[in-house]
Simulated scan of single mutants.
Amino acid sequence: MRRVPRWALLPSGSAPVVLVGGWTTAAALEGPSYDAVRQTISVLAAYGAAGFWVMTSALFAVGVCHLGTAVGLRAAAPAGRVALAAGGAAALAVALVPAPSSGGSLRHGSVAATGFAFLALWPVLAAVRGGADAPWALRLGPALAASAAMGGGALWYLIATGDGGPAGVAERLVTSLQSLWPLVVVVSCLLHQHRTRPPTP
């Protein structure tokens, strides 16, 4: 199994911090008119929003982080690395194609949905054979659980968006899971490498 470099901790660890910091700062700039329970992150990144540049920059940075993690995560199956990179590219596209201030956009929504799909699929696609010999987060069981949690969160988000429910909470939950899992996988790989490293003569 190929070794994961320690520098992979930087992009994987930065993604959740940048994402949460971005929406927290942008929401503070937007003020009390913004309802974080029912309104989505896209509202913060829409043209004309007070925190437009903050949220847009955060989404762009998260995309770069996912791309960097995909490069460094050499122990994962190639299909998973490609899916993670595609999710990162979708995040870049979401930043470059913000929703209009008037409301939803088919183009923006399509790009965001594509990103959700790739980031929900990448854990199971990244799983490797080896059972107990593989890093914990790259085993099929945990990978399936992660993909199922992300898929379930995305489904809740779609339902909440359609019926006027807590779409903001649902979106934050699923995007938090999607930004955290790459870090979990990287840490799992590094710990596995440390435990299985041959003793120094």
Rank of each mutant, 00 (worst) to 15 (best):
G72N: 11
T196Y: 08
G162Y: 06
L144A: 11
V111Y: 01
P98Y: 08
A70F: 08
L92S: 07
E171N: 06
V62Q: 00
V82H: 00
L67V: 15
A27F: 03
A49H: 01
W156D: 08
L67A: 15
G153C: 11
W122I: 09
L96G: 09
P16C: 08
W122Q: 12
M150Q: 12
T114I: 13
F118K: 04
A28V: 13
S176L: 14
S33V: 13
L155V: 14
V18E: 00
F116Y: 14
H194M: 13
S105L: 03
A90Y: 05
V64A: 14
L59H: 01
A132G: 10
V62I: 10
R81Y: 14
G153S: 11
V18D: 01
D35R: 02
F118G: 04
H194E: 15
A75F: 12
L144I: 13
L73D: 05
A95W: 05
L59I: 00
R197E: 15
V82P: 01
V17A: 09
Y47F: 12
A45H: 00
T175Y: 11
G63H: 09
Y34V: 06
A134W: 08
H194V: 14
L180M: 08
L183A: 12
V62D: 03
G152C: 09
W122F: 15
R2A: 15
T25F: 00
V4H: 06
D35P: 06
T200W: 12
T25E: 01
A143S: 14
L180A: 13
L106A: 14
P166S: 09
G164T: 10
V17D: 02
S14P: 02
L144Y: 09
A126P: 09
L173R: 04
G72A: 13
L29S: 02
R3N: 05
T24F: 10
A91C: 15
S12R: 06
W23G: 04
G153Y: 10
L191T: 14
P199Y: 08
G22H: 10
A95R: 03
G162W: 07
L106Y: 02
L183K: 03
G72S: 11
D35G: 07
V97S: 01
A70W: 10
W122M: 08
A46F: 00
G21F: 06
G72M: 13
M55T: 00
L19Q: 01
A127E: 10
T24M: 14
A28C: 02
L119I: 07
W7D: 01
S57W: 00
P11R: 08
